[in-house]
Simulated scan of single mutants.
Amino acid sequence: MTIDSNQLRDIQNAISDRIYIQIENWNLYLGDAGLSQKLAIECKANLDNGSAVAARKAIEAVQVRLGGGNTQLPLARLISSAQIFELEEILDPYCR
Rank of each mutant, 00 (worst) to 15 (best):
residue 57 K to Y: 09
residue 8 L to R: 03
residue 40 A to I: 03
residue 55 A to G: 06
residue 34 G to E: 06
residue 44 K to A: 15
residue 95 C to K: 01
residue 39 L to G: 01
residue 74 P to W: 04
residue 13 N to M: 06
residue 34 G to C: 10
residue 20 Y to K: 03
residue 15 I to G: 00
residue 17 D to L: 11
residue 52 A to E: 14
residue 60 E to P: 01
residue 44 K to N: 13
residue 60 E to A: 10
residue 77 R to I: 11
residue 16 S to M: 00
residue 72 Q to P: 00
residue 89 E to W: 03
residue 74 P to E: 02
residue 95 C to R: 04
residue 51 S to M: 03
residue 54 A to M: 05
residue 2 T to P: 10
residue 87 L to M: 08
residue 55 A to S: 12
residue 14 A to T: 08
residue 1 M to R: 08
residue 80 S to C: 05
residue 73 L to F: 12
residue 10 D to C: 05
residue 24 E to H: 09
residue 28 L to N: 05
residue 60 E to W: 02
residue 3 I to F: 04
residue 62 V to C: 07
residue 50 G to P: 06
residue 87 L to G: 04
residue 42 E to R: 11
residue 42 E to D: 08
residue 71 T to K: 11
residue 79 I to T: 13
residue 61 A to W: 04
residue 19 I to S: 00
residue 47 L to V: 06
residue 3 I to G: 02
residue 4 D to G: 14
residue 43 C to R: 00
residue 92 D to Y: 13
residue 58 A to I: 11
residue 66 L to K: 13
residue 54 A to F: 08
residue 72 Q to F: 07
residue 84 I to P: 11
residue 48 D to L: 11
residue 28 L to K: 11
residue 69 G to P: 07
residue 41 I to F: 05
residue 33 A to N: 01
residue 7 Q to A: 06
residue 76 A to L: 11
residue 8 L to N: 07
residue 65 R to I: 01
residue 13 N to I: 05
residue 91 L to H: 02
residue 8 L to Q: 10
residue 46 N to S: 13
residue 13 N to G: 04
residue 38 K to Q: 12
residue 31 G to H: 10
residue 22 Q to K: 15
residue 90 I to N: 01
residue 36 S to T: 02
residue 16 S to A: 12
residue 8 L to I: 10
residue 10 D to F: 00
residue 16 S to H: 01
residue 28 L to W: 08
residue 12 Q to P: 08
residue 87 L to T: 12
residue 69 G to C: 08
residue 3 I to V: 13
residue 69 G to A: 04
residue 85 F to H: 05
residue 17 D to K: 14
residue 73 L to V: 15
residue 18 R to A: 12
residue 7 Q to P: 02
residue 18 R to M: 08
residue 17 D to R: 13
residue 64 V to R: 00
residue 24 E to D: 15
residue 78 L to M: 14
residue 32 D to E: 14
residue 19 I to Q: 01
residue 2 T to W: 09
residue 47 L to G: 01
residue 45 A to C: 04
residue 23 I to R: 14
residue 14 A to G: 03
residue 87 L to H: 10
residue 77 R to N: 09
residue 72 Q to D: 06
residue 92 D to M: 13
residue 4 D to E: 12
residue 56 R to A: 00
residue 72 Q to N: 08
residue 61 A to V: 03
residue 8 L to Y: 04
residue 58 A to F: 10
residue 74 P to H: 09
residue 16 S to I: 00
residue 12 Q to K: 12
residue 75 L to K: 08
residue 5 S to M: 07
residue 74 P to V: 10
residue 51 S to I: 01
residue 78 L to E: 07
residue 29 Y to S: 01
residue 80 S to F: 06
residue 35 L to T: 02
residue 29 Y to T: 06
residue 21 I to V: 14
residue 67 G to D: 13
residue 23 I to P: 00
residue 63 Q to S: 13
residue 21 I to C: 04
residue 4 D to N: 15
residue 85 F to A: 14
residue 93 P to T: 05
residue 80 S to Q: 10
residue 93 P to Q: 02
residue 57 K to D: 09
residue 62 V to T: 09
residue 83 Q to V: 03
